[in-house]
């Protein structure tokens, strides 16, 4: 072979000469982007396996899949217990956040102290004790018709916490709303989301938005009247209207729809 051949990895230009050019004449890529082309015939057959054969390729893919699958199963199995514990802890913290007990150091202990009962609402609006395991997915519970209500006692006063779920702009949103003993005024709320835009829709998870809720009224007559409206449009004197998040109209509308959908299902309990 008189001259060597070099191929630009960026554009595929082939240069012939003793060494790669300083710059690719086609795409200006630097010398480092060139690789030498070794002629098929010129290169002696490599020792060992031919990595381009079909059998090798298929075997390689199969082995890769099996190894990765086992690895993932192993990791997932060994960590599952810890993860479930974390999720339960986090759910409890979210319930406590609705009761304005944010960032607790020992969540499980506070939860056991504050929450007196995990109950289900019956058709007539009364509460019956829930006897299952502590739940972490209140969306599926809601869809199944299991309407959970948590009873809590804060400084001797009774509060109710209702889990909510709905849709935001990009994904699911959820939250908890705590009501006073009269079942009509808001004591506190907590919202979270899976994938709302940080800085915009994501702000529903911040206290700035959530602090607008306490003291507002939930029901008017036989209807859910609590409403999240466009930022700046809330009537200051209204007992029911709350400003949404600025620049996040769709997420705010989602919060509004979620409150309406969930609390409407709880009307027998709220108006009892």
């Amino acid at each position: 072979m008189a001259t060597k051949k070099f191929r630009c990895k960026v554009c595929g230009y082939v240069h012939e000469g003793d060494k790669a050019p300083e710059k690719c004449p086609m795409c200006q890529a630097p010398q480092s982007e060139f690789e030498e082309i070794v002629e098929e015939g010129a290169a002696p057959a490599k020792k060992g396996l031919n990595t381009n054969s079909n059998v090798y390729t298929i075997l390689y893919a199969a082995v890769m899949v099996v190894v990765v699958a086992f690895l993932l199963v192993f990791v997932s199995q060994t960590l599952k217990e810890r993860q479930t514990a974390n999720v339960i802890n986090d759910t409890k913290q979210q319930i406590l956040s609705a009761l304005n007990l944010r960032d607790q150091a020992d969540v499980a202990a506070t939860y056991d102290k504050v929450i007196t009962a995990d109950a289900l609402m019956q058709a007539d609006g009364s509460l019956a004790k829930y006897n299952g395991e502590f739940n972490t997915s209140y969306k599926s519970e809601f869809d199944k018709g299991n309407l959970h209500v948590f009873e809590a006692s804060i400084n001797g006063q009774k509060k109710y916490v209702i889990p909510m779920n709905g849709l935001g702009l990009w994904g699911t949103i959820w939250g908890y709303i705590a009501l006073n003993e009269d079942r009509a005024t808001v004591y506190g709320v907590y919202f979270s989301h899976s994938s709302e835009t940080p800085g915009l829709g994501g702000e529903i998870a911040g206290t700035k938005f959530q602090d607008r809720f306490p003291g507002k009224s939930v029901v008017k007559g036989n209807e859910v009247a609590l409403k999240v409206v466009k930022f700046g449009k809330a009537d200051k004197s209204s007992q029911y209207e709350i400003d949404g998040v600025t620049g996040a109209t769709i997420t705010s509308t989602g919060v509004n729809a979620m409150i309406n959908k969930v609390l409407s299902a709880y009307l027998p309990f709220l108006t009892k």
Binding site: T51, N52, T57, Y60, A61, M64, V68, L71, L72, V75
Partner: peptide, 21 residues
């Protein structure tokens, strides 16, 4: 050892497995 024809998918598998773990 990576077969040339399926190298991209192998890379993707490695990355996806790593991220998942």
């Amino acid at each position: 050892t990576i077969p040339n024809r399926i190298r991209i998918i192998i890379q993707l598998v490695v990355v996806a497995a790593l991220v998942t773990i």
